[in-house]
Design a protein around this nucleic acid. Structure first.
Ligand SMILES: [Mn+2]
Ligand SMILES: [Mn+2]
Ligand SMILES: [Zn+2]
Ligand SMILES: [Zn+2]
Lengths: 150, 150
DNA sequence: ATATCAAATGCAAATAGTTGCATTAGCAAG
DNA sequence: CTTGCTAATGCAACTATTTGCATTTGATAT
């Protein structure tokens, strides 16, 4: 079974309809291999002859993320990026403030938290992202130094 | 010394200019006692006769937050709320998905993290917010039940 | 009090993303 | 193959927030 077919099957198993747009969005994410934003995905779908609206892109990225097919990460410049979720379990991300590289962080602080700390809140979801400088960007700073931003 | 004077002094100690807008914004946050968003703060300043631009509000809320005078929290509906930072140290927040109540969470997962988990990232900043249902909203659900949203 | 200069402001245009509502298209049942 | 229902889509208007650039103003030095 092709990778695309697997994703499509998962989508259907979650009670979502397999539409033309969704098929091409998934194909685009498979092609890309990295992280893409809504603009990039829009351009990909548009290029495949299929006319599409930005709100459809956004709604589908939301839908695919909420069924667990995609990972969504908000970069330091406040733009959301998406990739196919390769991971088996719940996880978070490390994001480089310089080159915007995104690394998977196989750790969630929530399960280890003392219930008392949670002040009787229930059904708690955790937003946890770490923003720093990746190893390469830190290395580059040593030589370039000074104002090394994007 | 009045509370306002204390805030103003802190502002100056951080090398910021004490402008008319900032004085009124701080007064507004002192008056309010809770959390306010940009619109509410804009309305407050506007009402005090002082004409002001939204971009000035946003820039000031950023500035006051980054010197540690304010806490900023992004609600589940993606609107940012601000309050005077009463806390002494670094902390995070618990946010109710129903009534939007914000509670201080005196815990940060970052210091306890194994350095290896951070994958050689440096100068790491932590975005950590917990979204759930507060005790009261959970109680209300028991009786109301069903579709109990905002 | 006056001059100076950077920081702060106003304005207008842009950004990413969301939403209500009318229309379309998957998909399943007949 | 046709019908029907719901989820998905297109469209246009809207949201919160950001940005570049010209102008103003607060703090400081004269
Ligand atoms: Mn991931
Ligand atoms: Mn706080
Ligand atoms: Zn990097
Ligand atoms: Zn609540």
């Amino acid at each position: 079974m092709t990778a695309l077919a697997g994703l499509e099957q998962f989508l259907i198993s979650k009670g979502c309809k397999l539409t033309r747009s969704r098929r091409i969005i998934l194909q685009g994410l498979l092609d890309n291999e990295g992280w893409s934003n809504a603009r990039e995905i829009y351009a990909y779908v548009q290029a495949r002859v299929h006319k599409i609206n930005f709100s459809t892109i956004y709604r589908n990225l939301d839908a695919l993320t909420s069924i667990g097919l995609l990972c969504r990460v908000e970069r330091a410049d406040a733009v959301n990026y998406y990739t196919l979720n390769q991971a088996s379990g719940h996880h978070h991300h490390l994001i480089c403030k310089s080159c915007h590289k995104i690394c998977q962080l196989d750790f969630c602080p929530l399960p280890q938290m003392d219930p008392e700390t949670l002040q009787n809140f229930t059904e708690v979801e955790c937003r946890f992202d770490l923003y720093g400088f990746c190893h390469e960007c830190q290395e580059n700073k040593k030589y370039t130094d000074g104002n090394g931003s994007d």
